[in-house]
């Protein structure tokens, strides 16, 4: 049985234009040790998906579908049971290490909190566990001390503290929501390595959310490309990146600037995807990408596409997927 199965997840949020479905029909499943990436542009529902997995969405939102963690549907649990899952079974790392730590509490106290809460260790055991964690994330207690406040640390160090907090109780699943977006590139590399190593050594399943295709390529084995709250392409990272089939995925890739490529040398404009993401209340009837897609057919505008298999473990939601010849 899969560790985590997400079946037909739909999320409706209250917006200025009334309730709108921001996540529609997301499906995926993970085994222990899997590393999955979720990629897409801002506002495509990556973070909402993560928050839905933690049941941390606003109270006036509705979540439908199933999120099955080891046979139990999280969405059907009461709030006490969910609290015992959060932090204990699923850990989460946030995007902004500057704001995701409590500014008035010492880092040692912040790391030890969930250990107290879930593992019910004695004071001494907790302290040992905390220093073990700090060693793991590269902030050895001998050098950094547990009585520092967040403002005394750099962004990268704070993110390390966040990671220590997230893995404090050895969760089965670690969700990293844009863990490196707020960090500079050199630190980004170290933090990604750290997350990957931690996941490898403890057998945690990792869900890494990013808009950065490079981050996904480095860390994830499988990837789900999201657009307007739907998955448009899903498969192993190798397959998807080398053999991308959805015009949107292709568009994302062509928008990456390459150092030394003709784009830079010729000072040509970067490639971009024409048009804009349709607003929530103006979503078309058919494929949400149809209006921006150069390959759109008539059916694209009329009917939502279904999943099509491109290869083993590689699906695409498109009526007119790209083939190898199209990309040349």
């Amino acid at each position: 049985m899969a560790l985590l199965q997400v079946q037909d997840l739909c999320v409706t949020l209250n917006t200025a234009h009334g309730p709108q479905e921001v996540i529609s029909h997301i499906n995926f499943s993970m085994e222990a040790g899997d590393k999955m990436g979720i990629v897409g542009e801002s506002g495509c529902g990556k973070s909402i998906t993560a928050l839905a997995l933690m049941s941390l969405l606003p109270r006036d939102s509705q979540t439908r579908g199933k999120i099955i963690l080891e046979g139990r549907d999280i969405l059907k649990l009461n709030s006490n049971k969910i609290c015992s899952i959060r932090g204990n079974r699923i850990g989460m790392i946030f995007q902004e290490p500057m704001t995701a730590l409590n500014p008035v509490k010492q880092i040692g106290a912040q790391v030890s909190e969930s250990i107290y809460l879930h593992l019910k260790l004695t004071r001494k055991q907790t302290l040992e566990r905390v220093s073990e964690l700090m060693d793991k994330v590269g902030l050895p207690v001998s050098k950094f001390g547990l009585n520092l406040y967040p403002h005394q640390l750099s962004g990268g160090q704070r993110q390390r503290v966040m990671i220590a907090m997230a893995i404090a109780c050895n969760p089965e699943i670690l969700i990293a929501d844009e863990p490196t977006t707020a960090l500079d590139v050199t630190v980004q590399e170290q933090i990604l390595d750290l997350i990957r190593d931690l996941a490898d050594s403890s057998g945690m399943a990792l869900i890494i959310i990013s808009h950065d295709l490079g981050v996904i390529a480095q860390t994830a084995e499988n990837v789900m490309v999201m657009y307007t709250g739907q998955s448009v392409e899903m498969g192993s990272t190798m397959d998807v990146f080398q053999n991308m089939s959805h015009p949107y995925t292709y568009g994302l890739f062509s928008a990456i600037p390459h150092v030394g490529s003709s784009v830079q040398l010729d000072r040509k404009r970067l490639n971009s995807i024409p048009g804009q993401v349709p607003e929530l209340h103006l979503r078309p009837r058919g494929c949400n990408f149809a209006d921006r897609c150069s390959r759109a057919l008539k059916i694209c505008k009329d009917k939502e596409p279904m999943a099509t298999r491109v290869a083993d473990h590689h699906q695409v939601w498109c009526y007119h997927p790209l083939t190898c010849e199209d990309k040349k």
């Binding site: 933690m54 941390l56 709030s79 006490n80 609290c83 015992s84 899952i85 959060r86 932090g87 204990n88 699923i90 850990g91 989460m92 946030f94 902004e96 704001t99 995701a100 730590l101 409590n102 500014p103 008035v104 509490k105 909190e113 969930s114 809460l117 879930h118 966040m162 907090m165 997230a166 404090a168």
Partner: peptide, 28 residues
């Protein structure tokens, strides 16, 4: 509304615990 409260909730804390451990020191 701050993000560290979301982080505290993601660590599995209930509303009461968050109020005492995170809100109170910040509004003191």
């Amino acid at each position: 509304k701050r993000e560290f409260i979301l982080a505290a909730r993601s660590a599995g804390k209930g509303r009461f615990k968050i109020s005492v451990e995170h809100i109170l020191p910040n509004i003191s």
